[in-house]
Design a protein around this nucleic acid. Structure first.
Lengths: 135, 135
DNA sequence: TCCATCTACTTTGCAATGGAAAGTCTCTAG
DNA sequence: CTAGAGACTTTCCATTGCAAAGTAGATGGA
């Protein structure tokens, strides 16, 4: 073993002055597909069917199945498997906790957008219209 | 082989009416760590040193190294390796393309926030303050 | 009646990837 | 002259996203 064992390299310092660490970006939520799913469910709080989600988010069956599983295990959504006549019919809705966590996540996301957009405005187009995204 | 081979399951339809597919969420950018890095670089267009980025984003050396490599390969950042005396000194800055792509990404992100926030406002707190984004 | 197909999902397999730990080099203290 | 810090890079591994294949019941001919 070359070199006596040293402590872990610099090691993450606890967020002391790490303004761009974005700790709040929950892995479970921060994912293209899941982000779409959660947004869909946010817009449709009464719940959505498997097929509907699939269409709205343009996912394959397999993907959707897996992501829903992840979301369920994380307690963000509630899945109800039932029958429509005798075809299986799965519906999905946000749990209260899911909604809370998603809203928190959105807050962080908003911060990201604001940070960057401000920079874009300040440094590259001084004096230009303040509002974040281009007109 | 049970069941004659069928076409790939329902297969992703081309974004026809898939309002929550969020295609624009570029994998390379849409990643906790990299998002922080890019934002840092957006705020500091003159470039940042390795150590500085590490601190700002609270990353370990290894992680930072890797993510920078990814960003560089994607052409989003430009990395300059030089020497400060004879210690290595790496600096990093956004490329023009990087800035463009990041701004595009931010546009999509803002859409996500808006979609969801609207839903939150409309369905859960009717009449409440409209803008999620600050006044 | 048989079988091909559709809807509705679940399971499996694999290649990519984030992250921790370890490695390399050089410089600076003691 | 050895211990340790700074600045990175490389290795290794468990996780994971995604696609393809699989399961199962319903439906529609021929």
């Amino acid at each position: 073993m070359p070199g006596t064992k040293r402590g872990p390299q610099s090691g993450p310092q606890q967020d002391k002055t790490a303004p761009f660490a974005y700790d709040g970006l929950d892995r479970v939520i921060h994912e293209k597909a899941r982000l779409g799913l959660l947004t869909s469910l946010m817009v449709n709080p009464e719940g959505l069917a498997f097929a509907e989600l699939k269409r709205l988010c343009d996912l394959t069956d397999g993907n959707l199945s897996r992501h829903l599983q992840v979301l369920q295990e994380a307690g963000l959504v509630e899945i109800t498997k039932g029958y429509d006549g005798n075809r299986p019919h799965t519906t999905c809705r946000l749990t209260a906790a899911g909604r809370r966590r998603f809203v928190d996540y959105l807050g962080v996301l908003e911060g990201v957008v604001r940070d960057a957009a401000e920079a874009a405005g300040d440094k590259y187009a001084p004096g230009a219209r303040r509002g974040v995204l281009p007109a």
